[in-house]
Every structure is written in structure tokens, then in C-alpha cells.
Simulated scan of single mutants.
Amino acid sequence: MINTRIIKEKDKKLEILKFIINNKNKSLNEIITVAAKIACGYLKIMIYEYDPLNNFLQTKITQNKRFQLDLKEQLSESVFRAKKNIIFSKKNKEFEPLPKEFSSEYNTGISIPIPPNKKINGIIIALNKNETTPTIKDIENLEFALYYSIKISDNFLEETEKENIIKVGKNILNINESKLKIDNKFIYLSENERKILEILFNNSNKIIKPKIIINYCWPNRKNSSSLLDVTIFRLRKKIKEINKGKDIIKTVRNKGYKFTKKSF
């Protein structure tokens, strides 16, 4: 007789792996948050990162409020320092009580330490309004999601560093191959087109003066401003071909150029 529960668990793990692999170029925080939600089906996933300067765990800004957990508190000692998994329940006294920050909105939760990696040092908290007590299988699925999120993300980072790639959002600039990739489309670049994008990508959302670009692309040529204008024009035309007619290089009048993640 076929065990449908085992099949469902395998399907869930395949779904987790598929998501991670298809989104490995995103930030580790984004990957973990969604992979964890797939793993346990909980409503809220929060990542608390350790801030060594202030000695507390903190999340990213959520609804203009920064949640902090002092390291003397329950989560910090049991999960972060002792590296233990914790099940929380507001009503079931056999488990740890929900931290006060969440007890007004949620009924159950799980917290587990994030395995060692190159980017995040902290814990993850999964919260649910359902009063059903979390199971060992929920924890195992979360651990599975965390492990492979980190493993695949770290491998992608190592490959990126080897290939000399600069990634900003969905835009990937391959320095060695002089190639720009947006989504699943790519264009080849001239040497100076690649240099211009290299400067802009490395200074995302900062205004770069034309003089800086000219000195990098044409260091020994005089009156190179016209060359810059022509190169920018051609580069924009190429970018629009693979980016649904939209540009990613913004001209800031009388100041210079900047790369923007939001196409326009």
C-alpha cells in the first residue's frame, strides 16, 4: 500500500529545492523566508540577525518598526546561544510560552538557529495563528529548508566570485565575458560599455560624475565627453532590447549617471 503521507513530504521537499534553485541569485534572507514558509506553511517567518556591536538579535525593518531581542531574553539564550530548537504554544503548557512580542497575534511557533554560513548569524522564527501544536516534522522541514537555502546560496556565491560577476537585483554583469543578463536574456558588451556598467553596478543608486567614467574608460584621450554620450546611447539601446524596452541607466541633469534597480 502506498503511503501518501511520505509522498506528500517528498513533494514538499522537492518544492522547497525547486524554489531555492530557481531563486539562488536572490538574497539569502529572501530565499530562507520563502523556503521556510513552504516548509511549514506558517503565516509569518522572521529572521533575527545577531548584532555584535549592540549585543542583541534584530530583524529587518517591518512596518517602520525594528523589533529587537536582548540577548538575556528567552529566545537569545535558548535558541541563539545554546543552538536549540524551541516549540512555542500560547495554550499548551508542555511547551515554551510565546514571546510577548508575538502572543497578541499568534498562538504557536517554532524557533531554530540558522546554521553557520557566510551571510547570516542568527535565528529564524515561524509563527502561526493556528492553535495546533507544531510537530517534529515541521521542525525537520524547516531545518531542511535552512540547510539547502544556505548550501545552494553559498555555492552560487562561490561560482559568482570565480566568474567575476556583479549582481544587482535581476541584473547580472559578467566581467570576464563582457555580458549583461537580465532575467533570462543577455547581451554582449563592448569593453567600454562593460566598464560603464561596472562602475554603475558597483555604486548602485549613487550618482557617478561623467569625469569619473571618462577617466576609467578613456584615461589618455582628450575631449572624451562625446565618446561617453555615444557609448551610453548605444548601451541603453542594447539594454532595452532585453529589458522590455526599459532603461536601467538614469541621467541626473548636470550631475551625471546612476544605475537604478527599478527599470523606467
Rank of each mutant, 00 (worst) to 15 (best):
M1D: 05
M1R: 04
R5V: 11
K13T: 04
E15S: 12
K18I: 02
F19Y: 15
I20C: 03
K26S: 09
N29T: 06
E30L: 03
E30C: 00
I31W: 01
T33W: 00
K37I: 02
C40Y: 01
Y42C: 02
L43N: 07
Y50R: 12
L71M: 15
S78G: 00
F80E: 05
K84H: 12
N85E: 13
I87P: 00
I87A: 00
K100S: 13
S104Y: 06
E105V: 12
I110T: 00
I114Y: 08
P115M: 12
P116I: 11
N117C: 11
K118D: 14
K119L: 12
I120K: 05
I124D: 01
K129Y: 02
K129A: 01
K129P: 00
E131A: 04
P134R: 00
L142H: 00
A145R: 01
I150N: 03
I152D: 01
L157Q: 12
L157K: 12
E158H: 11
E161L: 14
E163Q: 14
I166C: 06
N171H: 13
L173P: 06
N174D: 14
I175K: 11
N176K: 15
K181G: 01
I182M: 11
I187F: 07
S190A: 09
I196P: 02
I196Y: 03
I196M: 05
N203M: 08
S204E: 15
I207W: 06
K209Q: 12
P210N: 09
N215E: 15
C217V: 10
C217R: 04
W218T: 07
R221M: 13
K222T: 14
S226A: 14
L228R: 05
D229T: 14
F233G: 00
R234F: 11
L235C: 10
L235A: 08
R236H: 07
K237A: 13
K238S: 14
I239Q: 02
E241C: 04
K244I: 08
K246P: 03
K246D: 05
I249R: 07
T251G: 06
T251N: 13
Y257Q: 09
K258S: 11
F259G: 04
F259A: 05
T260G: 04
K262L: 13
